[in-house]
């Protein structure tokens, strides 16, 4: 840009010196002096003002749009051209071999560093895995002991149950004893019925009669 401005100044010169230095030129447009700062907000007298909508005829709008699009495309093209021609970054990009070499050197350095880290990590990892294995073995042994304990406990409980059942089995009625037992029960019938008198005495047996009154006894006498 600087070169262009230089050239504009010295248009009468036949041949101008080629300058490749670049710097930004910032132009300030529409500066109104003195202007109200933007953070002051809308003026009191303008708060309720409703600006009318611009009424542009359709034909004119289309033409304005076309011209502006054309202008923007052309300016962008010129911008791109100047950037590609004078930008310092673009100048360096041309040396492809240098870039490739830089890339390879960087890659080699990265790989070396990576290998070092990997070697360090390998030692740490092996120590950690060995410790973890020991821990696991210890844990497994503890678990085994607990399981054996539980198993013996369960066996003891089962034996106790068997003992109890054996004790009970002495009173069982076996098939050989069945006839005798039936005879025995027929010979000794049990009457579970009972009645209650006014005093709350339980009189067992369906056929049992209450003790006779004295009066009744008297009459009988």
């Amino acid at each position: 840009m600087f070169r262009i401005i230089n050239n504009l100044k010295n248009l009468s010169l036949d041949i101008s010196p080629v300058v490749t230095d670049t710097f930004n030129v910032i132009s300030v447009r529409w500066r109104r002096n003195p202007r109200k700062p933007i953070w002051k907000g809308t003026a009191k007298s303008k708060i309720f003002r409703v600006p009318p909508r611009p009424n542009i005829p359709e034909e004119e709008r289309l033409e304005i749009t076309r011209l502006y699009n054309k202008y923007r495309t052309e300016v962008k093209s010129i911008n791109n051209y100047l950037t590609s021609k004078y930008n310092v970054e673009n100048q360096q990009e041309d040396d492809k071999d240098l870039k490739q070499k830089q890339f390879e050197a960087d890659l080699a350095a990265c790989m070396k560093l990576n290998d070092e880290w990997n070697a360090k990590q390998k030692i740490l990892r092996e120590a950690r895995t060995a410790a973890e294995l020991q821990d696991l073995i210890k844990l497994a042994q503890e678990k085994k002991l607990i399981t054996l304990e539980k198993r013996s406990q369960r066996l003891k409980e089962a034996e106790e149950i068997v003992k109890e059942q054996k004790e009970l089995s002495k009173h069982f009625i076996l098939p050989e004893m069945l006839d005798a037992e039936i005879e025995k029960s027929l010979a000794n019938p049990v009457d579970h019925n009972f009645a209650l008198d006014k005093e709350g005495n339980r009189i067992i047996g369906r056929e049992t009669r209450p003790p006779l009154d004295k009066k009744v006894e008297k009459i009988r006498q």
Partner: peptide, 26 residues
């Protein structure tokens, strides 16, 4: 104007005058 400048640049750098008289449209 830019074309004139480019031509002058070309002359100064001993390059063909027609170089970069046309640019790619963005």
């Amino acid at each position: 104007l830019l074309k004139e400048l480019v031509i002058r640049d070309n002359i100064a750098n001993n390059e063909p005058i027609d170089k970069d008289n046309e640019i790619e449209i963005a």
